[in-house]
Nucleic acid binder design. Structure first.
Lengths: 350, 350
DNA sequence: ATTTTTTCCGTTACCGTGCACGGAATTCCA
DNA sequence: TGGAATTCCGTGCACGGTAACGGAAAAAAT
């Protein structure tokens, strides 16, 4: 009944006839222990089910740890700002266990800045890392270095096909496209959908929207094969250009009403949508940016598929912290997280 | 830059010219300190922004705390089983900070068992409590006693209109009915809906489905006023009776297709639904019971509104634990949580 | 003025681990 | 077989806070 009679390092010292110093040495296997005593201690640890007292440990070693977070810089209103807010929450919860969170940021369109940021990060000597792999090759170089230095790291948002990482927290991208299509069609056949995409001219970047688009199109293929799909491309930095593009398209294709965007930037077309309201039009996008949620509340956007990026980074930081403090591996390595469906009726409590 | 140079109890002892014993006495104001020294210490604490080291504290006082959870007993497959699973998760996370979780259960249809359970709970002498108020009057008696003994308590699921509680975590019930209606109609007008309800003959119990039903009906009133509503009542303990009732109803009203239930028991009518498939029928229910989610995966149920009861109890336990260990109040007292929309396309990651 | 009580405060022994230091036991080499 | 070099292990202090204990100083009683 009483779990209060916890067994301590002294208990296993007595049981083995050794001293706590020796027991401590095998616990942190830092050598200077004979094979015989090592095994004896291990056996007793096993028998008694010894678990170290984290407080005492933390208190004794005193020094604080540091977890670095390497993510794209968070311009206001961007997806990465949501991640950043999750970081501040996580900071509070782990600072009491002696861990500091230090963010390192880079321009997600500039690989040189990524390399610079990861260099600085390594120099700071973190005890663990959480990162979002934007540049495939650059990340590979980094993770190899991390593995050499035995620094644990966790992925968020997307991951590489290596396996040295401690954990991954993210969305099932393909499925999210599938879900998105179901929300847009409502299970009923639709005749046409417009996909608004961002023109990108950068190379070697991983593009998560590809998988989403694939899932979206597969759903349509299976559930309403006669649906016609159109693409247009916009430039996020050119608001008036966006309106022109949309105007031109809707003149040429007046029948197309439903609209989807596979990145977090549905808010970019909201001004145009509100200038040209169409009853019964479905507009579906991704991620809970403030601007997106406001448009949802006004009814301009019908539905958002969201992934709680703050939660993801939180879990990732906790996993790394747990590993640093207790050397415990997370229960699952790949954690595909729930996809939240947001409508105007449940967005206010998000 | 360095937060590592934390100020300790010794620092403020030196600054005041007193000993750490005295400082400790004012920190826990357990008397035996002159007014003059008390104020001197308080002033220095303020100046230096002293914050006690939780580990050292926990380590020193050694003794463990106990949080009691008072909820209806969790028959397999019931809503409260989900809560119970959240309890086991919470247990792991707080046992490392020296807190034990002890559940006390009662029959949610028997007020005497509630009183008995709360009596036993009080006798066990918990340091904090999480409870779901099923019986209004009985809970009021209990909470008054808790306030007298200065034992902090948090509500989950629903709350009373007292204000002595530390925090509340639950769903906005009325809104959830509203959201439910929106999911059922898909924003399009529907001509009729059947509400399947549970026959209850008990009194003085709080019934959360009342508010849900109200929200549901208000949505219909505003968005498709011509929709016709029917009610039928079933007995959860009589499976064949359920089928008969549904058979009889569908014979008399063949036009009514869409079905909603406002409690967690939509799974009760799933066998009947699967015997009588109707294309285009919408079936909406609440809560992520295993049986409900399976029916969702098969497409029998169109949508579930879920509330993560495990998360709720987790947050409640954390809030109470935080108060016990650090005397910190939670950031918000009333926490209305997000309503999750579950469909067959996002249920597998829930 | 002396004794008794009360008020106030410093000292000290923990809590369970981490780790440096030094010494004993063993092995090695001559 | 002696001494030197290793290997192995025990001791003791530190971490920051808690609380019992006992004693000095102040107040009250005689």
């Amino acid at each position: 009944m009483a779990p209060s009679d916890k067994i301590t390092i002294m208990d296993i010292a007595r049981r083995t006839g050794l001293s706590k110093g020796t027991v401590d040495r095998v616990l942190h296997n830092r050598g200077e222990v004979s094979r015989k005593s090592y095994e004896k201690v291990m056996k007793v640890i096993e028998e008694l089910g010894y678990e170290p007292n984290v407080y005492a440990s933390l208190l004794a070693k005193g020094g604080r740890h540091m977890i670095a977070v390497l993510i794209p810089s968070h311009e206001p209103g961007s997806f990465w700002e949501l991640v950043a807010s999750g970081i501040s929450r996580a900071r509070e919860s782990v600072e009491t266990i002696g861990i500091d969170i230090v963010p390192f940021e880079y321009d997600q369109y500039d690989i040189a800045s990524f390399e610079e940021a990861s260099r600085q990060m390594l120099e700071a000597g973190p005890d663990g890392i959480v990162l979002a792999p934007m540049f495939r090759d650059g990340t590979l170089v980094l993770t190899r270095e991390l593995e050499k230095r035995e620094i644990p790291y966790a992925f968020i948002d997307s991951k590489l096909d290596t396996d040295g990482y401690l954990a991954y927290f993210g969305l099932p991208l393909y499925k999210s496209g599938y879900l998105c299509a179901d929300q847009l069609t409502g299970g009923q056949p639709v005749d046409s959908v417009l996909m608004v995409r961002i023109r990108r001219d950068r190379l070697q970047q991983s593009d998560p929207t590809i998988n989403r688009r694939a899932g979206f199109m597969d759903y349509l293929l299976e559930n309403c094969p006669e649906c016609r799909l159109s693409n247009i491309f916009i430039d996020p930095n050119d608001p008036s250009g966006i309106e022109e593009t949309l105007d031109a398209f809707s003149r040429e294709h007046p029948g197309i009403r439903h609209i989807v965007m596979f990145n977090s930037r549905i808010h970019l077309i909201v001004p145009w949508l509100e200038k040209h309201p169409v009853p019964g039009r479905k507009v579906v996008g991704f991620d809970n940016l403030t601007a997106n949620m406001e448009a949802l509340g006004r009814g301009t956007v019908s539905c958002l598929i969201a992934q709680r990026p703050d939660e993801q980074v939180n879990l990732a930081i906790d996993a790394v912290a747990e590993y640093i403090v207790r050397k415990k591996l997370p229960p699952k390595k790949d954690n595909f997280m729930h996809m939240d469906i947001l409508t105007r009726y449940n967005v206010e409590y998000y």
